[in-house]
Design a protein around this nucleic acid. Sequence first.
DNA 1: TATCTGTTCTACTTGTTATAGAACAAATTC
DNA 2: GAATTTGTTCTATAACAAGTAGAACAGATA
Lengths: 124, 124
Amino acid sequence: MLITLDLESDIPIYQQLRDEIVRGLAAKKLAPEEGLPPVRALAQDLGINMHTVNKAYNILRAEGFIGVHKRRGVFVRRPEEYRAEAAHLDELKERLRPILAELLCRGLSAEEILPLCRVVIEEF
Amino acid sequence: MLITLDLESDIPIYQQLRDEIVRGLAAKKLAPEEGLPPVRALAQDLGINMHTVNKAYNILRAEGFIGVHKRRGVFVRRPEEYRAEAAHLDELKERLRPILAELLCRGLSAEEILPLCRVVIEEF
DNA sequence: TATCTGTTCTACTTGTTATAGAACAAATTC
DNA sequence: GAATTTGTTCTATAACAAGTAGAACAGATA
């Protein structure tokens, strides 16, 4: 799976890495039980620090997306294990709100925004 | 217009304030040409520092939403002056992507996600 | 036993966030 | 003209986050 980072971005590297892996899950480019690279190897690959990769992995684990075995390393959990619950939906709606607000007040209608969302979804 | 801030949040105060004002625009609770409170008064009202308000105002101005007169203060620009252009749409799609990806990989289909977006839009 | 895994620890640098106070320039009001 | 109100700019400080670095640890496995 290809991971792209922008080291110039004002989005933290660990956040970008976390987002890229979630994107891989959405696009089904990461299968359940599949192993992710060791923190040291991935850090080397991406040209970043081991601790930065570790931070991304820890967030993903806290979010339920991955699990950790000592020695076997990090692996993707099964989708049943991180299905959306009410709390997730609330938090995701909170994060959607400011973006949708900006689209609205920049003159787009709901009938223009929803197809735009569909396009983004279908790009995965 | 009511502005709510969460000083405990990990989202910076100036960002929350900026988002609240954009939300006010989306909800049409802020009319074009309407004046916003002076930085000192709003800071006092919200219990935050003047420079924090000023930072939010500067972001909003850079984004085209507000204008500044010396002495008359800060005012809302007309919607024609900040209509979405291609660059805006690209940036907003980028910001939507990780959220929609998370909804997808947590098991929601496009047919569940789009109505959810509609609900958020209709709450303004 | 040796090795590979994530984890934890200290340490340091850099940049961001938020606060504070002072002073400035422009525009308006008296 | 003088005083006032506006955003702006400056210096300063404290707290925190991000990223890097190196070392050491504990568990699992070959």
